[in-house]
């Protein structure tokens, strides 16, 4: 497990550097500090908290990671459902989503029952939720209500649960190193978010989809994903992959992550909000931070599962 210490020492070094730079910038800037700088400081503080939470989960191994992501799913689903149209007649379906579906999905991941956790939400919940809603008898905005909730479960629970599911993959020669695979995915995808932001601020000119997100530019995308792929390749020692394989997988995960961010922006735009929530200062809500991971995790999981096990 020496590799995991190397990774966390590296992360702490990066965060220390970021805190130092931001501190110097704040100290030298005119008072009061600009909103970009205030936001940057809040983001760095939140990063410290996130790294601490992930480290704590890693201390407890597989169970720790599963509990951590169960809480992430809870926070994400809560933010999502808040923005949907719910009616009084949805009450028990909604409670079931939080009290039954989330724990059961993560329990299935914990027991490594791949055959069930990969279809529990897309098949059984998909059929059960509209059936319950129909039995209840409220047909008002029926299609809209059931599809919104189904979507919420897929994004916030099903997709996110594929991050801890990486621990359960039996990759020959990688025994006991499942946590490192999770660290690899999170580091590259979150790194790509930061790098896209930096490249976009420095070189951003041509917007990809101005209607959806004015801050996403081709320059940011190409620079961010290119550099995040290099980051992934340089982290190959965490994984069972060669450096080229690690770079390609990181690139795919980051492209998925970009698409996840774009879809999340479209939903927020549709609902007329800027952030999903107010949970993490400087970052908005849980979904603002995990939107890229949501799209990246299942694809990364299935490529690795198909090609390496």
């Amino acid at each position: 497990m020496a590799d995991i210490y190397r990774l966390f020492i590296g992360l702490i070094a990066v965060l220390c550097a970021a805190s130092l730079v931001a501190g110097i910038l704040t100290w030298r800037s005119s008072k009061p500090a600009s909103s970009t700088l205030v936001n940057l400081n809040a983001r760095i503080r939140a990063w410290w908290v996130m790294v601490a939470a992930i480290s704590l989960a890693f201390v407890f191994g597989r169970s720790g990671v599963i509990i951590l992501f169960m809480l992430v799913s809870f926070a994400a689903l809560r933010e999502y459902v808040t923005l949907t149209h719910t009616r009084r007649s949805d009450h028990w379906v909604l409670i079931g989503m939080f009290l039954i579906v989330i724990p059961l999905q993560y329990y299935l991941v914990w027991t490594n029952w791949y055959g069930l956790y990969s279809i529990f939400i897309p098949v059984y919940c998909f059929l059960a939720m509209p059936a319950l809603a129909a039995l209840w008898g409220d047909t008002s905005r029926f299609l809209e209500r059931i599809s919104e909730q189904q979507w919420g479960l897929m994004l916030s629970v099903y997709c996110i649960s594929h991050v801890p599911a990486l621990v359960t993959l039996d990759i020959p020669g990688n025994e006991g190193r499942g946590l490192l695979l999770i660290a690899f995915l999170i580091a590259t995808v979150q790194g790509s978010d930061v790098l896209q932001y930096i490249f976009g601020k420095l070189f951003g000119r041509n917007r990809i989809s101005p209607n959806v997100s004015p801050s996403k530019t081709w320059e940011g995308l190409i620079g961010g994903i290119g550099s995040a792929s290099l980051l992934g390749a340089s982290l190959f020692w965490l994984t069972p992959f060669s450096s080229i394989e690690a770079g390609v997988l990181a690139g795919i995960a980051c492209i998925m992550g970009f698409l996840g961010g774009l879809v999340a922006s479209a939903i927020k735009r549709d609902r007329g909000v800027k952030d999903w929530g107010h949970m993490i200062e400087g970052h908005g809500g849980m979904l603002d931070r995990t939107d890229s991971l949501i799209f990246a995790a299942p694809v990364f999981f299935h490529i690795v599962r198909y090609a390496w096990t």
């Binding site: 809870f74 808040t82 719910t86 009450h91 409670i95 107010h278």
Partner: peptide
């Protein structure tokens, strides 16, 4: 904001919403 959705009249279990 939203409390009526968290715990509507006649219900005793709350739905977690922001």
């Amino acid at each position: 904001e939203n409390m009526s959705r968290v715990l509507p009249k006649g219900m005793f279990l709350p739905v977690p919403l922001l």
